[in-house]
Computed example of a mutant assay.
Amino acid sequence: MISLEGVSKSYGSKKAVDAVSLQANHKEILVLLGISGCGKTTTLKMINRLIEADTGTILIDGKNIKDQKPEHLRQSIGFVMQHSGLFPHYTVEQNIAITPNLLKWEKKKITDRTHELLEKLHLPESILKQYPNELSGGQQQRVGIARALIADTPVLLMDEPFGALDTITKQAIHNEFKNLDELKNKTTILVTHDVIEAFELGQRICLMDNGKIIQIGSPTEILYNPENEFVKDFFATNRLMLEHKIVSLKAIESFLKSPISAGAQQLVNKKSNVWEALQTLSIQNKYAEDYDVILHAFNHYRKLQAV
């Protein structure tokens, strides 16, 4: 759906992005991950021409973005930025309606779609007449997502969308974001420096450093088959938690020393990852034995994957 071929961007003598080539597949979430200054945000902004590439080609659905006017291109791409990027002098309702108004939607269509998104993002209708500075950080970010989703574009770009939120709020929005129906029909590229966020939201991860791509792969591939020591070291601090999050109960099923109880099976399913299962079972003491069985199986599994 999105293809970058040999794309570069320099500022003076410094190459912010150095001959980057990547593909974001149809209806997938691709995460650009790396520390500040690695080139991930510059790469993202070149896709909607907020920054113009010096060299290389960027295609969206097979069409060169240079063949379109930037304003027309951006109307076909949802964009969410850090700190929500809401216009402070517009109400929530006006912020959400910006793109539909540019596309000359009928007022009823805008209203209906706005209310639909408010419900999906767990926002009360009472905020529509409020201004961004009257909202909490979590509400502002949800409104920013609603604004990006309202036109139902095939492409969604997200630049550190949850970076300014506290951990609890961020986790709640992650869960809501992952369950949005709209995402199933979009190709999404998300920029973050947060390793946990990348593994929770990304179907594939593109790790960048010094303007170059170091490795692209699924969370499992990038963790268990690192391209080099840089990749291995990058995830070392969070490795155990990341493994808990990428390994499903189904993956460790053959390592269970005994079946988990019927009660535990009702609380978790094979599609759950080990992290979710252990979190759920830890709440109730009566499942302590099931907790230990799952943990033992996971430890056995991960030893075989160790690099």
Score class of each variant (00 low, 15 high):
Q305C: 09
V80Y: 10
F255Y: 15
E106F: 01
H296I: 03
E119Q: 12
T43P: 05
Q265M: 15
G85A: 11
I205A: 09
Q68N: 12
A297S: 12
D54S: 10
N175R: 11
A262F: 10
H193E: 12
Q266H: 15
K286H: 11
F177Q: 03
E134D: 01
L149H: 01
T188L: 13
A277D: 11
L33G: 12
N64G: 04
I173N: 06
L295R: 14
S272T: 02
N299A: 05
I216D: 05
Q266N: 15
L33P: 10
I294T: 09
A16R: 02
D18I: 09
A97G: 07
K170G: 00
A264Y: 14
H193L: 09
N175M: 08
A251E: 14
H244S: 04
E229K: 08
E106M: 01
G217L: 04
N48I: 02
E93Q: 14
L183R: 14
L121H: 04
I252S: 05
F177W: 04
L59W: 01
W105D: 03
L117R: 02
I283L: 13
T41R: 03
Y291L: 10
Q265T: 14
N64I: 05
S254M: 07
E276T: 13
G34K: 10
G211S: 01
A172V: 14
L201V: 06
V191T: 04
G85N: 09
K250N: 14
T114P: 06
S21N: 02
M81F: 15
L149C: 01
F177E: 06
L256R: 06
E119K: 14
K178I: 15
N25E: 14
Q305K: 14
E276N: 05
E93A: 12
G163D: 03
I2E: 12
H193R: 07
C38V: 04
V31Y: 11
K14M: 09
I77H: 11
C38D: 06
L281V: 00
E52R: 03
D54Y: 12
T169M: 08
